[in-house]
Amino acid sequence: MKTGIFLRHLTINFFLAIIVLPLLWVLLLSIKSMPDAYSGTLWPDKFDFSHYWYVVTKIETLPRNMLNSIVVTLSTVVITTVCAILAGYALVYARMPGRIAVISVLTASLFFPTKLISLIAIYEIQRWLGLINSTLGLIPPYVTLNLAISVLIMRAIFEQIPVELIEASRLDGCGPWGTLIRVLLPLTVNGIVVVAIVNFVTAWGEFLLAATLTNDQAVRTMPVILASVFGGMGQWAWPRVAAVYILLVLPGITFFALLQRLYFKGLTEGALKL
């Protein structure tokens, strides 16, 4: 039995190491001195922490691209989360006709390669609205990327809440809005965290739409920039690209680390029970 437990932990740790090692490698690359970075040795002879300072001050468009990414991502997360809360609420408690139809269309869209097929028409719409090559124009298509799954998650979460609670709050004189804000939102924080994180991850790293709908370096978001540069010499030398990478990965991991308790509760409460 002892060896069994040992083997089990060994296997788990083996997989965990595979997950963590590539990220550690990039972290290490971002603090290597130039000669070490290009010789390929895993552990550098000499560390150099100046790359971070370099990328934020010396690459002209980078702060701009960072700002673009932050604005687009935050707007997307807020809009989608609010939409998902309202839609999920309506789908569970409002006895409106066509509820089943809406739910089936949303579910069906999960199985359909929506983003891919709609791309051509989205380009057309954006051109018609004059939103090509505009950073803020990316927000409406981004909102839809995860809207269906977000609404379904919120619906699953709302369904866990006993009806008696809603009725009680009605008796106490709360309208539908009061019930939602005072009674339901505090109870569904976990689910909201899951929805927000899912949307954050998608919007923060979206590539296809951003690459298709924008052209100018100054308008683009970080993922497009990162995917188009490949470590060479000069401005985009290897350790510098790696430093940009670490700056991009950190917010996601930080949010997750801070909110992980709520996130796991949200996952088990309903997000995985679709």
Binding site: W25, G205, E206, L226
Partner: peptide, 30 residues
């Protein structure tokens, strides 16, 4: 264990792709 496992899930796709493009790189890839 769960937290470490979920780290890749909070890294957006494009960043995963670039990371592995470097990992597999002929000259510099580990």
């Amino acid at each position: 264990y769960r937290i470490i496992l979920l780290i890749p899930a909070v890294i957006p796709g494009t960043l995963i792709f670039t990371l592995w493009k470097w990992m597999y790189d002929f000259h510099i890839g580990p």
